[in-house]
Design a protein around this nucleic acid. Sequence first.
DNA 1: TGTTAGCACTCGTCGAATACGAGTGCTAAT
DNA 2: ATTAGCACTCGTATTCGACGAGTGCTAACA
Lengths: 342, 342
Amino acid sequence: MLTNRQLQILQVIVDDFVSSAQPVGSRQISKKDWITFSPATIRNEMADLEELGFLEKTHTSSGRVPSEKGYRFYVDHLLQPQIMSADEVSQIQSVFKRQIVEAEQLIKESANILSELTTYTTVLLGPDVQRHKVKRFQIVPLSEDSAVAIIVTDNGHVENRVFTLPEGFNPSDIEKMVNILNDRLSGVSLQDLHLKLELEALAVLRQHIHTADAVIQSLMQVASGQKEGKVYYAGKTNMLNQPEFHDLNKVRMFMELMDKDSQVQNLFKPLDSGIQIRIGSENNHLAIENCSVITASFGAGEERGSIAIIGPTRMDYQRVVTIMDLMRRGLSNALSHRNDSL
Amino acid sequence: MLTNRQLQILQVIVDDFVSSAQPVGSRQISKKDWITFSPATIRNEMADLEELGFLEKTHTSSGRVPSEKGYRFYVDHLLQPQIMSADEVSQIQSVFKRQIVEAEQLIKESANILSELTTYTTVLLGPDVQRHKVKRFQIVPLSEDSAVAIIVTDNGHVENRVFTLPEGFNPSDIEKMVNILNDRLSGVSLQDLHLKLELEALAVLRQHIHTADAVIQSLMQVASGQKEGKVYYAGKTNMLNQPEFHDLNKVRMFMELMDKDSQVQNLFKPLDSGIQIRIGSENNHLAIENCSVITASFGAGEERGSIAIIGPTRMDYQRVVTIMDLMRRGLSNALSHRNDSL
DNA sequence: TGTTAGCACTCGTCGAATACGAGTGCTAAT
DNA sequence: ATTAGCACTCGTATTCGACGAGTGCTAACA
């Protein structure tokens, strides 16, 4: 167990390093007016903390830097809620006060404000479309041999895709077919749709319509169109201002990662609904081995999305956590009041 | 007018500098076996070319580098079509040979191949949605007080948006309304829709439906949903491999630009349908003042999109132009065969 | 026994001095 | 008109020493 003095020192080191990006030395610590002991004592304690794995040195003789374990301890035990300036609070709330035209717009702006306020990179993951339920099928013929299939979900999301009509398809069959589909499959979630189309609808349609098989194939593609929710980014380039990204190679790896929605989705998905912090190697990805990711989810009922803020491990955890909490509450609230689409 | 010898020298300088990124000196030029004159002669010619503004020096005494004017002259007069390896040609054609599931997919893959083959950044601008014509309106009620409005265009594109139903709206009016809209407004282009909704449809609807005004408002929003065509990117990070982007500031500016669809759209839109090259400051944008942009458009009839490839001014113009030409032909072909949506 | 002052030592950074080499411009010879 | 020869320029890489921030250890102190 750490002594009280060690806790104090660890806290100062993390706080100082976070704001200055420079290794912090014993003298610097002793200058704080609530630190009552001498640099020499601090050096001794620091040596102990280093032995315990909470601190590191960049070279034999320069100040200490928190290790991953140090950050981990800090976020687990030393985090204190921070007071935000009224100005910043109102900046966050301004998004929610305005009449929300559409959920998508709301989310984009939230992401922008988050990355402005934190100076880090923000990723917002939209709700998982696959969970939504079918509200209505629609097929609109475009020409002799093509049509667009449309699926509207219960929350107003619209999936659509153009497909080629099979040879010998009778255009007047469309209405019949759409009716059958709507009868049978309303309320089925998109993720189940694939199966139900094949098991239930196919048999019935075959009885009525000549070329059902080909059309069903196309419909199945519509259903699986968007495998995962949308991803919104903000402040991608903020990372370039961080001194730890002065290395072009790191920049490249980071940017490449941020260009791949699917990877981002996996890496930044929260594991439960609280606010979570993953530090450095805990992220299990080379491109962000020196980054921390703070995630939270928001939403109401089935309609859940999540926020991720990515910064260097040397990031202002206290501030980000408080901002994040404000934002997730605001978003949840706004989304449950008007249950719009994404 | 430039002498034959000067042309030769300019050509060698551009070609060499493009591939090596190093200023090229007189000795290096004289080594080429089709160059018959001595380094000293070359030095004299180079001094003249510099005076004419085609070449520059990086410092008083090191090799020459093409100036913007030099590149301009090169692309205008010295460009020779290049022979591509059979391997590369087949790589391009492979995209078009496969059965195209959807135009969007086709375009994404084209962009990827372009940036792979060129090692530069590719931007593909989709067709301008605003030109498409309304094929069908649809309104699907979601709950007591909300519904989603859908517009299908003649090429299969689908625009949609959730809107709040006005107080006292009679759900059974929806069908009536949709019928009127489809009757009156089929074939109207999206860009005209705004106007026509207001001038023609509104009056008619008012006669039949109590709360028409509010609904029309929402429909107008749907129509203007996507102001401009979609933008697809590939190889954004390729630029980081170029030695001229070893400067973090340039990287930041470039990346920030590439995150703003609307700016990208303006900068990279081709002015006519041929292959165009804009060099350095001709782009009128600080973030790409050391870049060249090569654009071309593709498509059939109204369904036009465009390709832009962005690289450093020191870019392999010959190669890019030939690749671009292959690609634009391929895309035009593929799109006119199946007139799919974007 | 815990704390602190003092001091030798380490290491990274910065600036000056130096050597090197690639390339030019000019002059004079062909 | 062309070219060989040569002095000169300038960027890069390397070395060296001075400087300073910071440590670890020892010995003195409360």
